[in-house]
Each structure stands twice: as structure tokens, then as C-alpha cells.
Design a protein around this nucleic acid. Structure first.
Lengths: 343, 343
DNA sequence: TTGTATGCGTTATCAC
DNA sequence: GTGATAACGCATACAA
């Protein structure tokens, strides 16, 4: 049992009849190795089932072939999809993914920076959904490794995401074009909370479109966790009041929108007959609810972000400071022209 | 700029006026160090912002303070919650979490074993939702590190999960007790697929309860991705046929159940008036739909599993081979006694 | 209680 | 094209 130790590069070299350095070159290094010896070495490696010790290699090269991913949550459609997209880019590149889950401005995030990220067991960082009121920037820059923001960005760090203000404008415009004039926004607004800037930006887009059309903006904020439950809770009081009930709702995201649709059904408000609802995301459940929405693809966003980070790690310098992915309006059955007031 | 290198333990030792070994002992080692020098060393370390190189430490000790987590997906309520639970246990322990996302019997899973897991950059493995038709067992055992299965288990590896057969029996019994006799099962059955054994086990429990009550089992399988969309698609044909429509549905999980409820609403079948529905999971959306369900807590499961694995890594030998977490039936408004046939 | 010397498994630098 | 040899940064058995 003692002899069954994991074989190292020395064993490979011995079996191949070459020196350790030649073996190393043949397997990973970029140096000159004759085709003949390369084959001898790789054969020896496979017969021994040799796998290089990442620790030793990392110690020698300073690289870990690992990237760190910072997310506030995992159990959310957006983050879960994004992580899957990231892995899709990492697997073919042979990179490991270490996950750091910590809500912004939380105890966990503090210890993440002070302890976990300080260990620097990665070659680059993907920071997902940072929030501007957090002092992440200096800390991230202080790490001194290639870093990319995904979704929400921070000044000074290259960011890849979507144009949320334009999205807010677009969906609001869609409702205005249909003839709606009483359009309420449901979700996180930039006024009650500086956090969650991506969705707050959609609210800004909503305001812009309303103002431009000479309409009055009306914003209702949810408890800000952006869940169906929250959308439901926020929609009930809005829809219950017959007098002030809007003819259309712009939701900060699909989950909020779905919550609103469910609330409408409960309250007997027909969608889209008496109420049009539009969301943002392209959530898995959107189609089932016939939700008109802007579809984005977090997996693709994650995949692209990961690939960009890898090229950044490989020394690419010409990475754009800000990259916006395209999105698309998908019209379904949750939006229609408003019922004529008289009817 | 050349001098601003990251400080190593040598720098700490120099600043504290001791040798490297003493510094090492004071910071991490278990050896004897006087309180006085310990303080000097830790002070020096903090002023220098010293953080041990994980690579070097790992190379010396053979331990990585990292655990590997294998999941088939991330973007699912169950897996996302579980990962969050796992991190909850890992953070205070100072362990990193590297995530391996690969569907069973997939290309990715193959490369995961052959390449990623072979690097052994972890002290232990948490394998979530393994499927029995996959030959994971030998590969996992071959890694030679402490390993724990979560959810689905494999013979030969300690497993921690819930008793899905008992759960299937319990929810079916609930409907039988209410007076239902035509009860259909919706979801993955053990017959059309050996995979996804956890949900298939629930079907077995359903069958047991039906047989015991002298009732006829009727199973409808979904496309097996266990989403709301699938539940919806599978429920429509089942509910559309007035003649063979059951008075109650046992769903393999809450998402399937919710899909069935949505389908029922669409088809004008009142729930629970004409149809009772019960699920399993305690999904975030269950309460909103008034769904009667068995609640389980994937976060807690993940947290417990991670903690157990850590103690396994620390040399604990008395870890039970099979650990079942308790679950609880929560009765809501989706189940009631069946309408009397005559009415 | 502290310091010295050695090993962990690679890669990189140099001669050859 | 190949082979010694020195890092890489830390932990630890052993000597003091």
C-alpha cells in the first residue's frame, strides 16, 4: 500500500528514460522537445495516469488555472444561468471555477475580501452584479488580478452587460405606442434604494420614456428581492384600488411581472383586457404566462464574460471598457391596447 | 514597482525578528510558541498584510482547504439553494468551494472526471444528485478523497438526503384520507427512466400507498426536466379528457405541481374544487399557489452535508452511511375532499 | 521555546 | 534537443 503513491513527474521521466525537465517540457512547457521523446513521455504519463500537481505547478508558475466568481446569490434564475454560462466557457479552457457567494455589504462579503480573496487562489475575477454603494472597487483593484464586472459595473473596471436604461425606455415605449397613458412601474426604483442598479436603471428608462411622452410617472417599489412573491405583494394594493389602477404595468423584471399577473388573476382583473403587463428578462416562466418581455441571456453573458476574462489573463490589452449585449423585445399576450375608458 | 512584491513569511519573520519557522508556527502551525512572540509575529503579519500562499502551504501539507462540489445544474431551485447552504458551512471554516457543473452521463462529466477532478485540487468531494445509471462510483472512489453524496446516493459512499419513498407515500396517503380514489402521479416514474432516482422514488411511494389502499395507480411521466413548463405540458392532456380526469394529482415536485395548477386554471378546472394537487419540495412559489406540499430544505441539507464532509476530512470515522433529514407535510388550499360524484 | 535544514512537485534558467 | 540545478513559499522533524 505504501508503494501505490500518486506518481509524479519524476516517475514519468524515469519510465520514459528522460530527465524531469524534459518530461516537464514535453507535457506542458513550451520548450523544444523532439517529436520522438514527446511521444515517449506522453505515453509514460498516460500509462502511469500522471496528473500534474496543481499546487506545485502553481507555485512554480504563479498561475492557478482557476477563476474566482463573486455572486450575491446562487438561487436566482439570473445568477444560476450566468454561472452555467461561465462554466461553459471555462471547461474547454481547463479552468476551475471557485465560487464566492456573498451579498453586497454583508458580513460574508467582508470576510470574502479580507480572507478568501486575499489568498489569491485564482488568475482572474468575475464580479457579478456589484452594487455601487459598496466599496468593492478599491478592494477588487487591490487584488491586482485581471477583473471583469458582469451585469452591474463599477467605474474603473471593465464591464460587460446590457443597456438597462434603453430597455426601460423600450418596454415603456411599447405600452405608450399601444395607447396606454396610465402606466405604473413596479420594482426597485433608483430613489428608495441606490442598490440593484441594473433594475433601477430600467426605472430610469421608464421615467425618460414617460416624460418624453408627456405622461406622469408612477413608481411602486417592491421589497427589492425581485421575486414573484414580491411582485405579487406589491401589485395587490396597486390593483385593488379601482380608482387609481393603471392600465399597464412596467415590471423591473419578469419575476415581478409574473407576480403582478398572478395578483391580477386573483383580483379578477383580466390580463391583458384590463391590464397590460410587461417584464424584462426572458425568464423560463415568461412564455407560460404569455408575458411580453425583453429577453436577455445570462448564460451567454456569463460565457462571453468568462471568455473575455480568459483573454485578459492571457495578456490581451484591447478589451473594451464597456460592452453591451443586444436584447430583444418579445411581444406576447400580456400586452394589448387599453380598453376604451367609456366601456 | 519591483520592490512592492507581495510579502512572504520571510518578510514577516524578519519584521518580527524571528526565524521563518517560528513565524510559521505562530501563524498556522500547532507547535509551541510563546505568547509574546506570537503577538509580535501576528502584528508583523497584519502590518505587512501577509496572507499565506495557498499553493506553497498546500504543497507542504498536502491539503488545499478547498472542497469540490459536483452538481448537474445550477439554475434550479434545488441546486441553487443547496449550493448556498454549502457555502454557509464553508465560509466560517475558511474553505473554498470549487464548482463542477456537469449533467450525468454527459461529455462534460467525462472531462470533469478525466481532467478536472484528476487534478485533486480539493480535500473532499460533495456529489449532488448522482444518478444510478452513471458509473460515478468507481471514479469517485478512485479519487481517494473523502466523499459524500447529497440527495441521491450511491452504494459504497455515505449519503445524506431525504426519504423520498416515505414522502411519496405520505402525500398520497393525504389525498386518500381526504377521500380521493382517482389519483394520478405526474412526473418522473421509475419505469420510463432509471434516472432522477429521488423523484422516481416518490413515485414508488405513491404506488405503495395506492396498492395498500386497494386503488389503481396511474402514472404520467413528464419530459423529466422537472420544470413548471413540463408540469404544464403533461397536465394539459391529463385534464382535458373529461372522462378519465383524476380528482387529484400527486406531483413529483412542486414545479410540476405548479405547472399542473396553471394548466387547470387555463382549462377551467377549479383547484381544489374539481382537482386537488399536492407537490414535494417547499419551493419558494408553493405558498403563493396555495400548494399543499412536503417541505424539504436544500440549503440545510447542503449545510449539513458540507459540515459532515469537513468532519470527515478532519478524520472523523463515525459518519453514518446513510442520513435522512426529516420533512414535513404542509397543507394549504390546493387539496380538499373530492366533489361528490353525483353533484 | 526557538532556529536549522530539508522536502513538497513543478517549472525555468542555464549550461551542455 | 536535453539534462542538472535552482527557485517557488511554506511546513515540519530535528537539533539546540
Amino acid at each position: 500500500m505504501k508503494g501505490s503513491r500518486v506518481s509524479g513527474i519524476a516517475d514519468v521521466a524515469r519510465l520514459a528514460g528522460v530527465s524531469k525537465s524534459t518530461a516537464s517540457r514535453a507535457l506542458s512547457g513550451g520548450g523544444y522537445v523532439s517529436e520522438e521523446t514527446r511521444k515517449k513521455v506522453t505515453d509514460a504519463a498516460t500509462t502511469l495516469g500522471y496528473v500534474a500537481s496543481a499546487n506545485a505547478a502553481g507555485l512554480a508558475t504563479g498561475r492557478t488555472r482557476t477563476i474566482a466568481v463573486i455572486v450575491p446569490r446562487v438561487n436566482r434564475w439570473y445568477f444560476g444561468s450566468m454561472i452555467e454560462g461561465i462554466t461553459r466557457a471555462l471547461i474547454p479552457a481547463g479552468y476551475d471555477l471557485t465560487l464566492y457567494v456573498a451579498e453586497p455589504a454583508s458580513q460574508d462579503r467582508e470576510s470574502m475580501y479580507r480572507f478568501f480573496l486575499a489568498r489569491k487562489r485564482f488568475d482572474g475575477v468575475l464580479a457579478v452584479a456589484l452594487e455601487p454603494d459598496d466599496d468593492d472597487i478599491e478592494k477588487l483593484i487591490g487584488i491586482g488580478k485581471p477583473t471583469l464586472c458582469v451585469g452591474n459595473g463599477l467605474n474603473g473596471i471593465p464591464t460587460i452587460g446590457i443597456d438597462n436604461i434603453a430597455i426601460g425606455r423600450m418596454i415603456t415605449q411599447h405600452l405608450i405606442t399601444l395607447g396606454h397613458r396610465e402606466i405604473a412601474f413596479l420594482g426597485v426604483t433608483p430613489y428608495d434604494s441606490p442598490r440593484a442598479r441594473d433594475v433601477a436603471d430600467r426605472c430610469i428608462g421608464y421615467e425618460q420614456a414617460m416624460r418624453q411622452a408627456g405622461l406622469e410617472a408612477s413608481m411602486r417599489s417592491t421589497p427589492s428581492t425581485l421575486t414573484v412573491t414580491d411582485g405579487y405583494a406589491a401589485a395587490v394594493p396597486l390593483l385593488a384600488d379601482m380608482e387609481s389602477r393603471p392600465t399597464a404595468i412596467v415590471a423591473a423584471c419578469d419575476e415581478i411581472a409574473i407576480g403582478a399577473i398572478i395578483a391580477a388573476r386573483r383580483l379578477g382583473v383580466p390580463v391583458p383586457g384590463q391590464l397590460s403587463v410587461v417584464g424584462v428578462d426572458g425568464h423560463d416562466y415568461a412564455e407560460m404566462f404569455g408575458l411580453t418581455t425583453i429577453v436577455q441571456h445570462p448564460e451567454e453573458l456569463g460565457e462571453l464574460a468568462a471568455r473575455t476574462l480568459l483573454s485578459l489573463i492571457d495578456g490581451d490589452t484591447d478589451v473594451p471598457d464597456r460592452l453591451q449585449l443586444p436584447t430583444r423585445l418579445v411581444v406576447r399576450s400580456s400586452t394589448t391596447a387599453p380598453a376604451t375608458s367609456g366601456a
